[in-house]
Design a protein around this nucleic acid. Sequence first.
DNA 1: AGCTAGACTGTAATCGATTACATTTAAAAT
DNA 2: ATTTTAAATGTAATCGATTACAGTCTAGCT
Lengths: 336, 336
Amino acid sequence: MTNIKKVSELAGVSTATVSRTLKSPEQVTEATRDKVMQAVKQAGYRPNWLASSVKSGKSNSIVVLVPNLTNPFFLRIIGGIEQAAQEKGYSVLLGDTQGDSKRENEYAGMVLSNRADGLIQLDHSFPFAPQDAELADNVPMVSVCERIEGERKYPVIELDNYAASRALAHHLVGYGHQKFAAIVGQISSQIYRERLAGIRSVLQEENLPLPDEMLVGGSYTIEAGIEGVRQLLKQPVRPTAIFCFNDDIAIGAIHEIKKYGLRVPQDISVVGFDNIKVSAFIDPPLTTVDQPAYDMGRRAFEVLSVLMRGESLTRIREILPFQLVERQSSGPVHSS
Amino acid sequence: MTNIKKVSELAGVSTATVSRTLKSPEQVTEATRDKVMQAVKQAGYRPNWLASSVKSGKSNSIVVLVPNLTNPFFLRIIGGIEQAAQEKGYSVLLGDTQGDSKRENEYAGMVLSNRADGLIQLDHSFPFAPQDAELADNVPMVSVCERIEGERKYPVIELDNYAASRALAHHLVGYGHQKFAAIVGQISSQIYRERLAGIRSVLQEENLPLPDEMLVGGSYTIEAGIEGVRQLLKQPVRPTAIFCFNDDIAIGAIHEIKKYGLRVPQDISVVGFDNIKVSAFIDPPLTTVDQPAYDMGRRAFEVLSVLMRGESLTRIREILPFQLVERQSSGPVHSS
DNA sequence: AGCTAGACTGTAATCGATTACATTTAAAAT
DNA sequence: ATTTTAAATGTAATCGATTACAGTCTAGCT
């Protein structure tokens, strides 16, 4: 490995001069600068990043905790984070947690051991191990979409899930639907509560029921959508509209509804949440709520960046705008 | 920041003993071990990862270069890499290159500056900057799916794209198709040439044509599939079967074909490549070639891991098995 | 010519951990 | 009780860069 010492010898200067030539060239005469640069080139020298980092105490990396890498929605968020990070000279360590707390602990621990300077959590859990909780108090941490559990409040970039769900509900109520069902995602999260509350609030205002047996599901997957529809269609009353808590669920649901020989939206309207790319191209194209995933990622990094500089935030909660995207998976209710 | 010195003082021992207690406890008496562990706990001490890494010269990280984070197929590969890496104590630095060579250079450079120990390339380009090419000679690098360009041969984990394409072609020929078209992906890659060659070889054996005007596309996106179909349907002769070079293209193609009022597969059969998750749930479910993406990722890391240990490989090319997945997007040709 | 200010450059401390080598301690052997 | 041996611990060098501080040199001034 060529190190700074070799270069300094080659150029006939001290290591300090080499370092200065590379970090702050204006402090060095042009003559020596040339000598050094030539030696650098000749030796094929690259400063050892690890060494600079020990010295500075900063790793210029952040960890991103993802519950599920295969969810395309998260991917767009990560894309935004990555882009923003890259622009500021940070790199992104990917932590696929699979929702497993052991893994979360491990990845979160990276921030405590200087392997990373900050953390972005895409899930709702407090990622540090209980014994690390105290240390974690001063750690720059931000969450996206979900709010992190616990008394300590961390900044969050999110959507007004309540309002977005209300928008979806109004959309369906406007079409005259009265028999609703929902296939929900992970139950223990804030998002679940907010989205459900949003839907419930509209239905209550309209005096429409959402009985417990019409709430099925439990994970944000295509399979949950399929299984959800199976359960719903076993019920004596068939719903005419189904809220799916994300687009993956909706894709599974539509697929399964068709298998039963029913039509979307003529027999059952289906709406999703997230607006992943493929949602516009399935049959029928999905009515859903567009989340500005990429921007959410960017913003998350920017906020984290402020925390990492040791500054404090004026706002701890940032709410990005959603958009109701009306496509053909929802429509007026048909009397059977 | 609590460092090893503070802990050593707290425990009344030397820093060496603290280090040994944590790294090789068997070298330390139980009594001192207890003292040290208590001090560690009390101080909330975590070894500074950066410092250990400078010493060892290993960062225990790898960079993964992805041309396009939004492609779900890549995601599964990354998932496999991540899993395998995590098991061996490595972490994954994500490099979203967008196919931009400047970004590739930058990310690849991380390996030269000890920020990462190895590199996995999911694209086909040689990621290092020209001036770094010589240095890059000894860098542990592996590619997945695509082969890296240049004289120097790096290990690659791939599919027999030629054989897989032949399987798809045989499948369609077996249904009696005679008028073929293809919507291809990125043209400059090995994969493009192999897949096309595979298709061509079968068609030639059967004396069937694949005229140049029936080759459209140029990128692995849904949009390319849509645009491709538009171009193909402008031609005087309408194809009865379309090879799409990946599933995203196929999804776009099917969507657009339906827009023209044509049916899949009755009017046009469509086949894809990759078998991404959603392909099984679109309408009609897509006939495609399943690539063991997750395993490919795992395997890529394992191979890289061998290189990073400085050992040499017996085989430089590893070919994983594919599987033809016959679903409902392909079927017998209907005489019009 | 002599002196001073300011620009360059070099020396050596530093970051935080690891580890070769030296030293101390305790146990075992005589 | 003394010597031998092994185990435990400490001291200090080391990894590779950065940087405070000190030293040198040149240019400009009187």
